[in-house]
Amino acid sequence: MKRLLILFTSLFLLLPLHASALGIPKLQGYVNDYANMISGSSRATLEEELKSFEQSDSTQLVILTLPSLEGETVEEYSIKVVEAWKLGQARKDNGILFLVSKDDRKMRIEVGRGLEGRLTDLMAGRIIDLVVKPRFKRGDFDGGFTAGVASLIDATRGEFKAEGENSRKGTQPFPSSWLFLFVILILFFFFLSSLRKRGKTSNWADQSGRSHGGSPGGFVIFPSGRGGEGGTFGGGGGTFGGGGASGSW
Protein backbone atom coordinates (compact mmCIF):
# COMPACT_ATOMS: atom_id res chain seq x y z
CA MET A 1 0.00 0.00 0.00
CA LYS A 2 2.78 2.35 0.95
CA ARG A 3 4.58 1.56 -2.27
CA LEU A 4 1.46 2.29 -4.25
CA LEU A 5 1.15 5.62 -2.51
CA ILE A 6 4.72 6.49 -3.32
CA LEU A 7 4.17 5.47 -6.91
CA PHE A 8 1.15 7.69 -7.24
CA THR A 9 2.81 10.68 -5.62
CA SER A 10 5.79 10.34 -7.91
CA LEU A 11 3.46 10.13 -10.88
CA PHE A 12 1.77 13.32 -9.78
CA LEU A 13 5.12 14.98 -9.39
CA LEU A 14 5.87 14.11 -13.00
CA LEU A 15 2.64 15.62 -14.30
CA PRO A 16 3.46 19.34 -14.17
CA LEU A 17 6.62 18.72 -16.15
CA HIS A 18 4.59 17.49 -19.07
CA ALA A 19 1.99 20.19 -18.75
CA SER A 20 4.53 23.00 -18.98
CA ALA A 21 4.64 22.97 -22.80
CA LEU A 22 2.32 25.61 -24.21
CA GLY A 23 -0.95 24.03 -25.30
CA ILE A 24 -3.10 24.96 -28.27
CA PRO A 25 -5.81 27.44 -27.28
CA LYS A 26 -9.41 26.95 -28.28
CA LEU A 27 -10.53 28.41 -31.58
CA GLN A 28 -13.37 30.72 -30.59
CA GLY A 29 -13.93 32.89 -33.60
CA TYR A 30 -12.06 35.11 -36.02
CA VAL A 31 -10.48 37.08 -33.18
CA ASN A 32 -8.96 34.99 -30.40
CA ASP A 33 -7.60 37.66 -28.14
CA TYR A 34 -6.07 35.72 -25.27
CA ALA A 35 -3.65 38.55 -24.42
CA ASN A 36 -6.34 41.25 -24.26
CA MET A 37 -4.62 43.46 -26.82
CA ILE A 38 -7.65 44.50 -28.83
CA SER A 39 -10.35 46.84 -27.59
CA GLY A 40 -13.98 45.80 -27.65
CA SER A 41 -15.04 48.02 -30.53
CA SER A 42 -12.10 47.09 -32.78
CA ARG A 43 -12.71 43.48 -31.97
CA ALA A 44 -16.31 43.69 -33.15
CA THR A 45 -15.26 45.49 -36.34
CA LEU A 46 -12.58 42.91 -37.07
CA GLU A 47 -14.94 40.00 -36.43
CA GLU A 48 -17.46 41.56 -38.80
CA GLU A 49 -14.89 42.27 -41.48
CA LEU A 50 -13.35 38.80 -41.35
CA LYS A 51 -16.72 37.12 -41.35
CA SER A 52 -17.86 38.92 -44.46
CA PHE A 53 -14.50 38.20 -46.08
CA GLU A 54 -14.95 34.50 -45.50
CA GLN A 55 -18.49 34.65 -46.79
CA SER A 56 -17.43 36.34 -50.02
CA ASP A 57 -14.06 34.72 -50.65
CA SER A 58 -14.14 31.61 -48.43
CA THR A 59 -10.68 32.61 -47.22
CA GLN A 60 -10.42 32.17 -43.47
CA LEU A 61 -8.27 34.72 -41.67
CA VAL A 62 -7.96 34.26 -37.93
CA ILE A 63 -6.20 36.36 -35.29
CA LEU A 64 -4.62 34.81 -32.21
CA THR A 65 -2.94 36.80 -29.47
CA LEU A 66 -1.13 35.20 -26.56
CA PRO A 67 0.45 36.66 -23.45
CA SER A 68 3.61 34.63 -23.98
CA LEU A 69 5.04 31.77 -26.05
CA GLU A 70 6.70 30.33 -22.95
CA GLY A 71 9.99 29.69 -24.66
CA GLU A 72 8.75 28.20 -27.91
CA THR A 73 9.78 29.79 -31.18
CA VAL A 74 7.00 31.63 -32.92
CA GLU A 75 7.39 29.56 -36.10
CA GLU A 76 7.14 26.21 -34.38
CA TYR A 77 4.20 27.29 -32.30
CA SER A 78 2.23 28.79 -35.14
CA ILE A 79 2.53 25.69 -37.32
CA LYS A 80 1.26 23.63 -34.39
CA VAL A 81 -1.72 25.94 -34.03
CA VAL A 82 -2.69 25.81 -37.69
CA GLU A 83 -2.24 22.04 -37.78
CA ALA A 84 -4.73 21.83 -34.94
CA TRP A 85 -7.13 24.48 -36.19
CA LYS A 86 -7.01 23.57 -39.89
CA LEU A 87 -7.90 27.07 -41.03
CA GLY A 88 -9.11 27.53 -44.57
CA GLN A 89 -11.25 25.27 -46.70
CA ALA A 90 -10.25 21.73 -47.55
CA ARG A 91 -8.54 21.51 -50.98
CA LYS A 92 -8.43 25.31 -51.28
CA ASP A 93 -6.07 25.54 -48.33
CA ASN A 94 -6.88 29.20 -47.97
CA GLY A 95 -6.29 29.86 -44.30
CA ILE A 96 -4.24 32.59 -42.66
CA LEU A 97 -3.22 32.85 -39.04
CA PHE A 98 -2.06 36.17 -37.64
CA LEU A 99 -0.31 35.24 -34.40
CA VAL A 100 0.95 37.81 -31.90
CA SER A 101 2.73 37.08 -28.64
CA LYS A 102 2.55 40.15 -26.45
CA ASP A 103 5.39 39.72 -23.96
CA ASP A 104 7.82 38.22 -26.49
CA ARG A 105 6.96 41.12 -28.83
CA LYS A 106 6.84 38.64 -31.67
CA MET A 107 4.36 38.03 -34.43
CA ARG A 108 3.88 35.74 -37.36
CA ILE A 109 1.64 35.53 -40.38
CA GLU A 110 1.17 31.86 -41.27
CA VAL A 111 -0.10 31.40 -44.81
CA GLY A 112 -2.02 28.38 -46.11
CA ARG A 113 -0.70 26.51 -49.13
CA GLY A 114 -3.42 27.77 -51.43
CA LEU A 115 -2.55 31.41 -50.78
CA GLU A 116 1.21 31.15 -51.06
CA GLY A 117 1.06 32.41 -54.63
CA ARG A 118 -0.66 35.68 -53.68
CA LEU A 119 0.51 36.21 -50.16
CA THR A 120 4.14 35.24 -50.58
CA ASP A 121 6.60 35.14 -47.72
CA LEU A 122 7.85 38.45 -49.03
CA MET A 123 4.42 40.03 -49.06
CA ALA A 124 3.68 38.76 -45.57
CA GLY A 125 7.05 40.09 -44.44
CA ARG A 126 6.34 43.49 -45.89
CA ILE A 127 2.95 43.65 -44.24
CA ILE A 128 4.64 42.90 -40.92
CA ASP A 129 7.51 45.35 -41.44
CA LEU A 130 5.69 48.25 -43.05
CA VAL A 131 2.12 48.01 -41.80
CA VAL A 132 1.95 46.28 -38.46
CA LYS A 133 5.34 46.84 -36.85
CA PRO A 134 5.35 50.67 -36.84
CA ARG A 135 1.91 50.77 -35.20
CA PHE A 136 2.80 48.13 -32.64
CA LYS A 137 5.96 50.05 -31.80
CA ARG A 138 3.85 53.07 -30.93
CA GLY A 139 1.67 50.87 -28.76
CA ASP A 140 -1.22 51.23 -31.16
CA PHE A 141 -2.33 47.59 -31.15
CA ASP A 142 -5.84 48.27 -32.41
CA GLY A 143 -4.44 50.19 -35.37
CA GLY A 144 -1.87 47.47 -36.06
CA PHE A 145 -4.44 44.70 -36.15
CA THR A 146 -6.94 46.71 -38.19
CA ALA A 147 -4.38 47.85 -40.75
CA GLY A 148 -2.67 44.46 -40.87
CA VAL A 149 -5.93 42.64 -41.46
CA ALA A 150 -6.91 45.16 -44.12
CA SER A 151 -3.60 44.58 -45.94
CA LEU A 152 -3.95 40.83 -45.67
CA ILE A 153 -7.45 40.98 -47.08
CA ASP A 154 -6.32 43.27 -49.90
CA ALA A 155 -3.49 40.90 -50.73
CA THR A 156 -5.66 37.81 -50.91
CA ARG A 157 -8.99 39.10 -52.17
CA GLY A 158 -10.10 37.46 -55.37
CA GLU A 159 -7.83 34.44 -55.11
CA PHE A 160 -10.77 32.27 -54.10
CA LYS A 161 -14.51 32.60 -54.32
CA ALA A 162 -17.04 31.18 -51.95
CA GLU A 163 -19.16 28.53 -53.64
CA GLY A 164 -22.57 29.21 -52.17
CA GLU A 165 -23.82 28.15 -48.79
CA ASN A 166 -22.50 24.65 -48.81
CA SER A 167 -18.93 25.38 -49.72
CA ARG A 168 -17.68 24.90 -46.21
CA LYS A 169 -20.31 23.16 -44.20
CA GLY A 170 -21.47 20.84 -46.98
CA THR A 171 -21.39 17.11 -46.71
CA GLN A 172 -18.21 15.37 -47.61
CA PRO A 173 -18.06 13.72 -51.01
CA PHE A 174 -18.88 10.04 -51.00
CA PRO A 175 -15.65 8.24 -50.15
CA SER A 176 -14.67 5.93 -52.97
CA SER A 177 -13.30 3.24 -50.68
CA TRP A 178 -16.72 2.90 -49.07
CA LEU A 179 -18.27 2.59 -52.48
CA PHE A 180 -15.82 -0.15 -53.34
CA LEU A 181 -16.61 -2.10 -50.18
CA PHE A 182 -20.28 -1.61 -50.80
CA VAL A 183 -20.06 -3.05 -54.30
CA ILE A 184 -18.04 -6.01 -53.05
CA LEU A 185 -20.61 -6.66 -50.34
CA ILE A 186 -23.47 -6.58 -52.81
CA LEU A 187 -21.62 -8.88 -55.16
CA PHE A 188 -20.88 -11.19 -52.27
CA PHE A 189 -24.53 -11.41 -51.22
CA PHE A 190 -25.58 -11.85 -54.81
CA PHE A 191 -23.10 -14.67 -55.12
CA LEU A 192 -24.26 -16.29 -51.89
CA SER A 193 -27.90 -16.11 -52.85
CA SER A 194 -27.27 -17.58 -56.26
CA LEU A 195 -25.38 -20.43 -54.62
CA ARG A 196 -28.29 -21.05 -52.31
CA LYS A 197 -30.84 -20.89 -55.08
CA ARG A 198 -29.02 -23.53 -57.00
CA GLY A 199 -28.79 -25.61 -53.84
CA LYS A 200 -32.56 -25.18 -53.38
CA THR A 201 -32.52 -24.27 -49.71
CA SER A 202 -35.69 -22.33 -50.15
CA ASN A 203 -36.07 -20.40 -46.91
CA TRP A 204 -32.69 -18.71 -47.02
CA ALA A 205 -32.88 -18.03 -50.72
CA ASP A 206 -36.16 -16.20 -50.32
CA GLN A 207 -34.79 -13.85 -47.75
CA SER A 208 -31.57 -12.98 -49.46
CA GLY A 209 -33.33 -12.80 -52.80
CA ARG A 210 -35.64 -10.18 -51.41
CA SER A 211 -32.85 -8.22 -49.87
CA HIS A 212 -30.91 -7.81 -53.07
CA GLY A 213 -34.02 -7.29 -55.14
CA GLY A 214 -35.34 -4.44 -53.02
CA SER A 215 -33.69 -1.20 -52.17
CA PRO A 216 -30.37 -1.62 -50.39
CA GLY A 217 -31.62 0.58 -47.60
CA GLY A 218 -30.40 -1.75 -44.90
CA PHE A 219 -26.83 -1.22 -45.94
CA VAL A 220 -26.79 2.53 -45.84
CA ILE A 221 -24.91 3.19 -42.65
CA PHE A 222 -22.70 6.01 -43.91
CA PRO A 223 -22.67 9.23 -41.97
CA SER A 224 -24.59 11.86 -43.87
CA GLY A 225 -22.47 14.80 -42.83
CA ARG A 226 -19.92 16.02 -40.35
CA GLY A 227 -21.13 16.16 -36.79
CA GLY A 228 -20.84 18.94 -34.28
CA GLU A 229 -21.27 21.81 -36.69
CA GLY A 230 -24.22 23.43 -35.04
CA GLY A 231 -23.11 27.03 -35.40
CA THR A 232 -19.74 26.57 -33.73
CA PHE A 233 -16.74 28.16 -35.39
CA GLY A 234 -14.15 25.85 -36.85
CA GLY A 235 -11.50 25.45 -39.51
CA GLY A 236 -12.49 23.90 -42.81
CA GLY A 237 -9.57 21.50 -43.22
CA GLY A 238 -6.98 23.67 -44.92
CA THR A 239 -3.31 22.69 -44.86
CA PHE A 240 -0.18 24.74 -44.29
CA GLY A 241 3.37 24.20 -45.48
CA GLY A 242 5.20 26.71 -43.33
CA GLY A 243 4.77 29.70 -45.62
CA GLY A 244 4.55 33.21 -44.22
CA ALA A 245 6.78 35.56 -42.32
CA SER A 246 7.70 36.44 -38.77
CA GLY A 247 8.74 39.66 -37.14
CA SER A 248 9.20 41.40 -33.85
CA TRP A 249 8.57 44.92 -32.65
Binding site: E75, D121, L122, R126, G243, G244, A245, S246
Partner: peptide
Amino acid sequence: HQLEGTEN
Protein backbone atom coordinates in the same frame (compact mmCIF):
# COMPACT_ATOMS: atom_id res chain seq x y z
CA HIS B 1 12.15 37.38 -45.75
CA GLN B 2 12.20 34.86 -48.54
CA LEU B 3 15.15 33.04 -47.06
CA GLU B 4 13.63 32.93 -43.60
CA GLY B 5 10.38 31.71 -45.06
CA THR B 6 12.18 29.01 -46.99
CA GLU B 7 14.17 27.85 -44.00
CA ASN B 8 10.93 27.58 -42.09
